[in-house]
Amino acid sequence: MSLKPTSNPSRWQFLVLLLTSLSALLGVASTPVEARVQAVLIWGTDEAKPTGKNLKEVDSKLRDRLANVFKWKNYFEVNRQTATLPSSVKVQTIKLSEECSVEVKLLPENVAEVKLIGKGKAMVTRRHSLSKPDALVLAGDDKNKTAWFVVLNFN
């Protein structure tokens, strides 16, 4: 019994193959190769700086930006970390304090996925477009009418 030779792909099959390859190529191209992220943990309060603490006020530019949006008078920097995010690394974890860390993941279409982890649990998951110059600020109520802020800047 002789086998019939396989027929050449039709014009439609070829078009589908071409489109699939093109979209896959576009997907890879739109994932940023590398990004740097700076995460700053800040404490906002109306009280003066606690004496004997190694807290420094956030720089005046950031302080003004925060004070234009939020109600607190003073903003103290608690921790600052910078990390590089190569697209090959799936998730980059940045630890900011005992209770708090952020997980950052680069996604296609110039988007970063940021997960705020508190006490081991994801508090907020936010997808943030890197095509805008916006800082991403994750914030919340703290004890005694104070607040915490995690300010993330990407470049």
Binding site: S97, E99, K119, M123, V124, A135, V137, D142, T146
Partner: peptide
């Protein structure tokens, strides 16, 4: 600034 604010009057999460 893009902001996500977690309202938690009891302040149970204390990252600071």
């Amino acid at each position: 600034m893009s902001v996500v604010y977690v309202a938690d009057e009891n302040g149970t999460f204390n990252p600071v």
